[in-house]
């Protein structure tokens, strides 16, 4: 189970990175195409979708690296029992919000499909396709939060994909 979940988080990280590279390629294509007299319709819309894919796919992957930020001021000052209670509270609240986000993100995709929503830009993309990244990303984020909430409730430490990498620019 652990291995399966971790590969899910890693997979979403890889998909996000593909989104980042695609954003670069699509934004850069404008610079190359113009002097050559080539018209590439819709690249900026596609760049927006690629960026969205990067941000949404990476949600759980980033969470599991402990890199989504929060205010730790209080957490660091209270005793161990209070701290455990706060950790549980923040995970429970986070899970509730993520559940709402995941539910409505999936519903948005279904509605876009049902309404036959098409992008109003030159790209004319059926919107449910790029929106899949938001539905997938927020569902995996929900899974990651439930994962941590269950572990914390059982009194175990939540699993992390990596400890703070030594190469990050840390001042401590």
């Amino acid at each position: 189970m652990r291995a399966l979940l971790d590969s899910l988080y890693r997979l979403s990280g890889v998909l996000a990175a593909v989104g980042m590279v695609a954003t670069l390629v699509l934004v850069a294509s404008g610079v190359l195409a113009r002097p050559l007299g080539i018209y590439l319709p819709g690249t900026d819309d596609y760049a927006g979708y690629a960026m969205a894919a990067c941000g949404f796919f990476a949600l759980a992957y980033t969470f599991k690296h402990g890199e989504h930020i929060r205010v730790s001021l209080l957490l660091e000052r209270v005793g161990p029992r209070m701290r455990a209670a706060l950790e549980w509270f923040s995970l429970a609240a986070g899970t509730a919000v993520a559940a709402m986000l995941a539910f409505y993100a999936v519903r948005m995709v279904l509605q876009s499909h049902e309404f036959e929503e098409i992008s109003q830009g030159v790209d004319a993309t059926p919107l449910w396709i790029p929106q899949l990244s938001m539905a997938f990303g927020s569902v995996v984020l929900l899974i990651a939060l439930i994962d941590d909430l269950v572990m914390t409730t059982l009194g175990r430490a939540p699993a992390r994909l990596a400890t703070h990498s030594g190469e990050a620019a840390r001042m401590e």
Partner: peptide, 24 residues
């Protein structure tokens, strides 16, 4: 060959037919 701003498929097509280069 003039670079003309395009913001919709109609405008892009019109620019092409006028001989210009549509640029988003």
């Amino acid at each position: 060959g003039m670079k003309i701003r395009s913001y919709s498929p109609t405008v892009a097509r019109m620019i092409e037919l006028m001989g210009g280069q549509p640029v988003t």
